[in-house]
Every structure is written in structure tokens, then in C-alpha cells.
Amino acid sequence: MPPRLHPNLTIRQIDWQQTIPVRHLVLWPDRPPAFSQVENDAAGQHFGGFIDDNLVCVASVFIEGEQARLRKYATLPQFQGQGVGTQVLSAIFAYLKQAKFSYFWCDARESAIGFYQRFGMQVEGERFYKSEVAYVKMAIKVENLPS
């Protein structure tokens, strides 16, 4: 079944500071907002999904050599299941392919493994924990990303 697409979604690059409220609300609501910040946020590429000028999805990509790492990917709960996250991730894939990166990876919460597998990503390594939440590393060669 093809993914649902949200008809009013626009995606653009944003400043890292704009990501914090969505990251905080979705990923770590019981921690202070600063817990949702990444040490090198200023060096990342940050993508935002907007519906009617409201930021509803954020994703940050950090580059090291020919590798790209997805971090702090979050969609507001009321917009989950509507194709918003899929569309934002697809925009990131297009960016990675154009920029000629070779490898894409992320630390995925175990609850999201199925989501990433839909894009061809595979689990690499063993389960680990961040603040008592179970994660696995998931990765894919950029050439194998869906179009």
C-alpha cells in the first residue's frame, strides 16, 4: 500500500533552534527542552515539515565524510499517521542522493523499526539504551534509498 501523503505539507530547511519545541514535545517531554538539543546542532542540516505555516515535523541530518546521520526526527502526535514524516524523510533522501552521500544511518527507537524498514533500512548491531529507551542502529546505502 502506498504511503499516505498530506496535501498541505511544505518542507524546507530550518534553523536548529526551531527544532527544539517539536523535539522536546515528541521525544523527551518529561525532560527539560535542553535535553532535546544535540551537541553539534549548529553544524547539522535541519528540515521542517509545515502545515499552514505550523511546524509539525522536524528532522536533523549530520554529515561526516560520505556518511549522513539522521537525529532527532519527530512528528507532532496529532499529525502522525498522515504521511508527514514519510514526506519529510523522502525530502531528506532526495537531498542525500543529490549531494552524493554513500551511507545513511540513525539510532532508531525499537518502536520505530518497522517504519524505517519500509524505506529499506536494516538493523545493524545490538539493542542499546538511551535514558532507559531501547534503540537499534539502522542503516542503508544511499544508492538503495527509495526514490
Rank of each mutant, 00 (worst) to 15 (best):
T86W: 03
A139F: 07
G83E: 00
R69D: 03
L55Y: 04
S147Q: 15
Q13H: 10
I14F: 05
Y73D: 03
S60P: 00
V142T: 14
K137F: 03
Q122A: 10
I140W: 11
G44A: 14
I113T: 08
E124G: 01
R118E: 12
A94V: 12
Y135M: 08
F115C: 00
S147H: 14
E66P: 09
A59C: 13
Y135F: 15
H46P: 03
V58K: 02
Q13T: 14
A94D: 14
K137E: 10
P7T: 11
H24W: 12
E124S: 13
L27T: 08
I51T: 05
Y103F: 15
L27H: 11
G49F: 00
E143N: 10
M138C: 08
M138Q: 08
W28H: 07
S60Y: 01
R23K: 03
L145C: 15
A43R: 06
G125T: 06
A34N: 09
M121C: 03
L27S: 10
A42K: 11
R109E: 02
R127S: 06
R69Y: 02
L25Q: 15
F50N: 00
A34V: 12
D52Y: 03
T75N: 05
C57L: 02
Q117D: 02
W16Q: 04
A43H: 09
E64T: 13
L5A: 12
Y116H: 01
I20C: 02
A94W: 02
F47M: 04
A108N: 01
R12L: 07
C57R: 03
V142E: 09
N8A: 13
S36V: 03
A43T: 09
V61L: 15
S131Y: 05
L89D: 06
L89M: 14
I92M: 14
S147C: 04
P3A: 10
F115W: 08
Q45M: 05
Q45H: 13
H46V: 00
T75Q: 06
Q122G: 00
Q18E: 15
R4G: 04
A42T: 09
L55N: 05
M121F: 08
A134Q: 11
D107R: 10
G125H: 07
P21T: 04
L27W: 06
H6F: 11
H46N: 03
Q17E: 15
P3V: 06
Q122E: 12
A91H: 15
I92P: 00
C57V: 01
V56W: 00
G85E: 00
A68H: 05
P3I: 04
V88R: 07
A74M: 07
L5P: 00
G44K: 04
